[in-house]
């Protein structure tokens, strides 16, 4: 199967998570995935635009989807929220001909059309279904066997099923299967399917967001995880970069490193921690780097 994708970076990988952008390209290349970056794509609205100007949000996302359609490729994301927002637009447009026509009327002004021919998929799913775990296993040169790894799915890669549907949101397994394929030990913990709190940061930082961040990272710590891994850069920003604020909030140190999904794969298939940007995390990954050396 040809593994070519229209690559939708999202804002974070181009902003606060440059290590995600870099590690995605490095890992994709090693795995034989070709990523053609959609350099004309915009932000997905992240739920914020959707909650103010919903029609505008669907129109810009229809344009994002149309860019992938121009290339005749499926659109691949590296962010949970991008995935759910793009799919929300796709779902609503594909099921509502009037809305689709209205959106296309606007797009036509810029010479574009949304057809609905490209699928929206996530890097995690393509590693499992496109590359395949058997092939991945063969490529592992540095099994993660010394590591207890706590998966953190992040809401928008499992919920809601009418937009995601890749696996059962009540009992997902993809991350654990991947961790096992890389030789690591998945650890079960309370916050595996919980929310990082990111999306209410500006309205409820103290009341909600940081409390969730603290609960999540502490849950992983309680089960003696060496690190957490997440397929979403928003979860990553929240759990890693905001962990000091969360620690302050609860008054204890947590100190739980959080890896981006491609970084974890990269370590196992022999890429160097430095090129994967492990030094760019707020919670130090020194212990991990030492143990894979």
């Amino acid at each position: 199967m040809e593994l070519r994708y229209a690559f939708y970076t999202g804002c974070s990988a181009k902003g606060v998570a440059p290590e995600l952008y870099d590690s995605t390209f490095l890992v994709a290349e090693k795995l034989g995935m070709e990523l053609i970056e959609l350099e004309a794509a915009t932000c997905c609205g992240a739920g914020a635009v959707q909650e103010k100007d919903e029609f505008l949000a669907h129109t810009i996302n229809a344009r994002n989807l149309a860019l992938a359609e121009e290339l005749g490729l499926d659109l691949l994301t590296i962010c949970n929220t991008c995935t759910v927002m793009l799919r929300d637009t796709k779902f609503k447009l594909d099921n509502d001909p009037e809305l689709k026509a209205a959106v296309n009327e606007v797009l036509a002004e810029a010479g574009l059309e949304y057809k609905g021919t490209s699928e929206v998929t996530h890097f995690l799913w393509e590693v499992i279904d496109g590359v395949g775990l058997d092939k991945l296993k063969e490529m592992v040169v540095r099994p993660l066997k010394d590591f207890n790894i706590a998966s953190f799915y992040g809401c928008h890669i499992i919920r809601p099923p009418y937009l995601i549907g890749y696996e059962d949101p009540d009992n997902p397994k993809s991350l654990e299967m991947l961790i096992e394929a890389l030789g690591g030990k998945p650890v079960d913990h309370e916050a595996r399917l919980a929310c990082c709190g990111f999306h209410s940061f500006w309205s409820a930082e103290d009341k909600v967001t940081l409390k969730l961040t603290a609960m999540d990272t502490e849950a992983a710590k309680e089960e003696n995880a060496d690190f957490m891994v997440t397929p979403c850069p928003l979860c990553h920003t929240q759990l890693d970069a905001m962990q000091p604020e969360a620690e302050e909030k609860i008054g204890t140190s947590i100190d739980m490193p959080v890896l981006h999904l491609p970084q974890m794969i990269g370590l196992a298939i022999g890429l160097k921690p430095k090129e994967l940007g492990l030094h760019k995390h707020v919670i130090p990954t020194t212990e991990i780097i030492k143990r894979v050396a």
């Binding site: 799919r87 099921n95 699928e119 937009l163 549907g165």
Partner: peptide, 23 residues
């Protein structure tokens, strides 16, 4: 001029043509 309808979702599971072969 556009009203966006709340979709019908009960029992709907997103149909991805690449859907989760392995799982």
């Amino acid at each position: 001029e556009v009203t966006i309808k709340i979709p019908q979702i009960l029992g709907v599971v997103y149909e991805d043509k690449r859907k989760s072969k392995l799982l």
